[in-house]
Design a protein around this nucleic acid. Structure first.
Length: 603
RNA sequence: GCCCCCGUAGCUCAGGUGGAUAGAGCAUCGGUUUCCUAAACCGCAGGCCGCAGGUUCAAAUCCUGCCGGGGGUACCA
């Protein structure tokens, strides 16, 4: 956690004040002193209305213990805190005010502005960075699409969330390894192989590979409903693949190549990056040793013809390692992957950005690992239990209905991006026809709108993909943030003077401007917050607030109803305001980067 | 059946470890541009926070039950 220095100062002063006034009362709760600065720091909240102060401390909880009305506690301690602060500081930075049972704290604007804006202008995009992750290896697995299926918007969510988390943790100094783990193995390939033999051929496959693969996939499930023998054939085909039958392997390779080309195209347009791409099949030769290890630990048994590990959790079925026919399962490879990655990286943490539907499978896999490490009596530092985390997210529904690859009912990412870009072109033609980087900007905006759609709610929630909302560039959207950034850049282009050197921040005396400064000061905490809950949404919400606050400054009107311009004849005032603009631009750009969106300078 | 998640304005969502009059955006309606990019800004309107109890000085937030939606529930991933 990046701690706010103002809050720390307050907590210290409050501790001293409480002890001074209520020193003779037994202040312990259990064996903990309730008036420590840490407790007070943790009890700080943000007032509903920013006008009430930058932060606040409720004292209701002390009323019973101190046998005093909350209002009285607040009034008395507010005075004592202010006195204490006055003694400590030459220039008072904080001012405390009792309102009801709250201690509302206001920070001295000049100090806040000087420190915050100064830091942003000198650190630039490094503002908000930290080293709390130093020497900590962190793995993030995301995207992980299934080979032989088109890249639909269903896969988009993991891709976008993971990509963002990778950037957020890097910013905090973690040594991050972003991993793509495509599903290139499993019974589904048996299905594809059978489908290809029955209804496919080389020519149609080469003409439109991706489309043809989907057709085969859908047709298989269609026909398998009527004819169960197809499923049996698929199982056999998969077993042949596992046994290394050359012709089957060959076909599998072809499917893989086709899909990889499509995926890489998608990652390219989205600007999504990975440090490592390792498919499920990579673990094919690493499963035996895992199974052997589990057997040696005495954890396996045969149940209904399958090799399983029984779990202690009564809510989970046994974890299947091998099917009756000896073929492996998804979880088997995942276990191998878990162990392989642990041995390779000895990570501090390993994150799996995978949908909530697989939550039970993760529990199973992790409990198997836990049982194994316990059975082997490993010392704590050699155990990965507790370091692996399933970062789950809700479904992506389409216009209120659920998508299904099997029924061919899905939305292609490419179509979505094409439509978004088409709309972006239209808008540019309408609003800024002379724009130089026309196509490039249209792509930034279109892709930004699509990616934003995946970052606009907390990850645990389902997302309803609605065309009208994704293709809307107004209000709380990606293009709105990008537009704000472009406007900020435009101001910087228009300003003739210099920015650095002495700036008189007291000139930023409008309420709207001060609100922006306060928000800028919150950026570092926002980044650590997003990391703490593993959710880029925290950054999204922050950027929307910051942009809205800045846009208010931008269009603020003076007493005469005229726009109070940032750049005016008043050189000192302009300088102060443009410094603010520069700071906002820096933070918006960096925030967009953390989300994985590009920040156009003009649009 | 059992387990997990969710239920806030017409729609999509915010409301960190309970706190000060429940907030945004979209849509609707009205206003702002002799232009520092109106992809913006301002305003009107819109709510028994699914229902019923309980804990608390204080509950949208915590506990229990019910109703409604989604997901999972050994040989798919």
């Amino acid at each position: 956690m990046t701690k706010d220095k103002f809050k720390i100062q307050f907590a210290e002063a409050a501790e001293a004040a409480f002890k001074e006034i209520y020193g003779d009362i037994d202040r312990t709760e259990g064996d903990h002193d309730i008036f420590t600065r840490d407790k007070i720091y943790d009890g700080l909240e943000t007032p509903k209305d920013p006008k009430m102060g930058r932060f606040a401390f409720p004292v209701f909880k002390y009323a019973k213990l101190l046998k005093t009305k909350p209002q009285e506690i607040a009034t008395k301690t507010a005075d004592a805190i202010n006195t204490y602060l006055d003694r400590q500081q030459r220039t008072p930075l904080l001012r405390c005010e009792a309102v009801g049972g709250f201690l509302n704290v206001k920070t001295d604007f000049n100090t806040l502005a000087r420190e915050t804006l100064g830091a942003i202008l000198s650190q630039k995009e490094k503002f908000g960075s930290a080293d709390i992750g130093r020497n900590r290896k962190l793995l993030v697995e995301y995207s992980s699409p299934n080979i032989a299926k088109p890249f639909g918007i269903g896969h988009l969510r993991s891709t976008v969330i993971g990509n963002s988390l990778r950037r957020i943790f890097k910013k905090l100094g973690y040594d991050v390894v972003g991993i793509n783990y495509p599903g290139d193995w499993g019974t589904q390939f048996g299905k594809m192989i059978v489908a290809y033999h029955n209804w496919g051929n080389k020519d149609t496959l080469e003409k439109d590979p991706v489309k043809n693969l989907l057709e085969l996939y859908v047709r298989f499930h269609d026909e398998a409903e009527k004819d169960d023998s197809l499923n049996e054939a698929a199982r056999q085909a998969f077993r042949k693949l596992e046994e290394g039958d050359p012709e089957t392997v060959n076909l599998w390779e072809k499917f893989k190549t086709i899909s990889n080309e499509e995926f890489n195209l998608a990652y390219g347009t989205l600007g999504v990056e990975f440090d490592e791409v390792v498919g499920e099949s990579f673990y094919n030769d690493k499963m035996d040793s895992v199974v052997a290890r589990l057997e040696k630990a005495g954890l396996t048994r045969i149940s209904r013809g399958a090799l399983v590990v029984e779990l202690d959790d009564p809510n989970l079925p046994p974890c299947l390692l091998k099917k009756t026919d000896g073929a492996t399962l998804y979880v088997t490879r995942d276990l191998a992957g878990l162990i392989y990655r642990w041995e390779k990286y000895h990570f501090k943490e390993s994150l799996y950005v995978v949908g909530t539907a697989q939550s039970d499978y993760f529990k199973q896999a992790l409990q198997v690992i836990d049982k194994l490490e316990t059975a082997e009596n490993l010392p704590p530092e050699q155990r990965m239990t507790g370091r692996v985390r399933h970062i789950e997210f809700g479904w992506v529904k389409f216009e209120g209905t659920s998508m299904s690859t099997r029924r061919g009912k899905l939305v292609f990412l490419k179509d979505v991006i094409d439509q978004a870009m088409a709309l972006a072109r239209e808008k540019i033609k309408e609003k800024n026809p002379d724009l130089k980087d026309f196509e490039k900007t249209a792509r930034m905006i279109g892709v930004g709108a699509v990616m934003f759609s995946q970052l606009s709610v907390r990850r645990q929630k389902d997302i309803n993909f609605i065309w009208n909302e994704v293709l809307n560039f107004e209000g709380e959207t990606g293009p709105y943030l990008q537009y704000t950034h472009a406007r900020l850049c435009s101001l910087l282009r228009n300003y003739e003077g210099d920015i650095g050197g002495e700036v008189d921040y007291t000139l930023l005396d409008r309420e709207e401007e001060q609100r922006v400064v306060e928000l800028l000061a919150d950026f570092p905490e926002t980044v650590t917050d997003a990391a703490r809950v593993y959710d880029p949404y925290m950054v999204t919400a922050y950027l929307l607030k910051l942009s809205a606050a800045f846009n208010k400054v931008y269009q603020r009107k003076d007493e005469n109803g005229r726009i109070d311009k940032i750049i005016s004849d008043d050189r000192e005032l302009s300088k102060a305001r443009v410094s603010l603009v520069r700071a906002v631009q820096t933070v918006v750009k960096e925030g967009l980067y953390l989300l994985g969106l590009e920040a156009p300078e003009e649009m």
